[in-house]
Design a protein around this nucleic acid. Structure first.
Lengths: 213, 213
DNA sequence: ACGTAATAACTGACCGGTTAGTTATTAATA
DNA sequence: TATTAATAACTAACCGGTCAGTTATTACGT
């Protein structure tokens, strides 16, 4: 069973934090903060529980690191959206839908979103960071784009912030669905396809059909 | 401090279970299952912790009762939708949007939805019940209505189940938003107004504009 | 009506299992 | 060999669940 020539552990100071955060994401997403056991996180990361405390002060700090890491790469994407071209809104929506569809497949947004929703009551300042640094940016950028399109007469009247929510909501529900209901037998949704179909629905739904004054 | 004429408790066997479930909903929704303390639930319900065990076997059973109770009244509404009139889809959507908007304001769907999402990993059979008895009904009824409308040529081609998700997603995100981000300072959404605006958006977005063959 | 015995709703101190966090020790590497 | 990453045994607090005792309420006898 054990190869005596093989050391029973390796010293890999640099790699540990990332591995721990990755393992913690999986366990927190599956169990929630309170029900997640440090022993489970440690085992999954391939270390002992004590080793966690070489890199993090508390369980809560590990949790914060998980959420923070999940925000970081996404901020890039938002910048791209904000710096978006001033072309017609329909082009922008199709572009964003294409990007978002694959991003949702790739990144672990579902698990992290689930965590943030679940623990907002216990870690309100964490929900605040997630909102201020990520959600509000996305929603704000969308709102601005829609308002601009309304100014150009492309989009009919209506609350642009609500329109923005209508735009992104199916993607959010889609990833939540994947985490929550698909594992218990519910038919899953093809997220990229959903993103594209919804983009077309919204393009038609937002179109201003009044004759220009 | 204490009025000696006032008894320190009253015997109210019939009222207790409902009060306990109501208190438990509040605590579970705020803290999640694992982090919720029975002492807190008991205090909020105005009883001692021991009294909880006169009416429920375990913490988990209280949790199940909370979720079950939240499903029951809603099933009625879905029946109404399923038995829906065969008129044009736009009428149905406006009707449902009106109902849904006020229901979301009234019922504690946000808290329960949050709980189900958060604890799906720990109580998968509970997520299954929630899905099978509630979510699948709503989505299925919507899907049927849309497919029928496509058959009549009212709605353009596209996956009807995805269209159904596009329809209900903003409401779900709206209630989650209220539970998660509004408490930390995010600007809330007017859910009835959102429902109505989204209904109009989708009516336009789904409309079949091809000339009939 | 009144007193009192019987019932059962309810309390709150307690117990034990679980788990976050600590530390004495071991072993990999430079 | 010195350094320190990593382990594993340990501690202590917390909390779900229990139960012996208390008190509100009811039933019954006079």
């Amino acid at each position: 069973m054990l190869d005596p020539g093989e050391p029973k552990f390796r010293r890999r100071k640099a790699a540990r934090p990332g591995e721990i955060v990755e393992a913690a994401l999986a366990v927190f997403a599956e169990r929630g903060f309170a029900a997640a056991k440090l022993d489970d996180i440690a085992r999954r990361a391939g270390v002992s529980k004590g080793a966690l405390y070489l890199y993090f002060e508390t369980k809560e700090e590990i949790f914060r690191a998980v959420v923070a890491q999940a925000i970081a790469p996404n901020v890039q994407m938002i910048r791209a959206v904000i710096a978006a071209h001033p072309g017609p809104l329909s082009d922008l929506l199709r572009l964003v839908a294409g990007r978002a569809g694959v991003l949702m497949e790739t990144l672990p947004v579902g698990g992290v979103l689930k965590m943030v929703i679940a623990e907002a009551g216990n870690f309100p300042e964490l929900a605040r960071v997630w909102h201020d640094d990520l959600v509000a940016h996305i929603l704000g950028a969308m709102t601005d784009a829609i308002r601009a399109a309304q100014g150009r007469g492309e989009v009919r009247p209506g609350d642009p912030r609500m329109y923005a929510l209508e735009l992104i909501a199916p993607m959010l529900v889609g990833v939540i669905w994947r985490e929550t209901f698909a594992p218990v037998g519910a038919q899953p949704f093809d997220l990229p396809a959903l993103a594209l179909q919804h983009a077309e629905t919204m393009i038609e739904g937002l179109k201003n059909r009044e004759v220009a004054a």
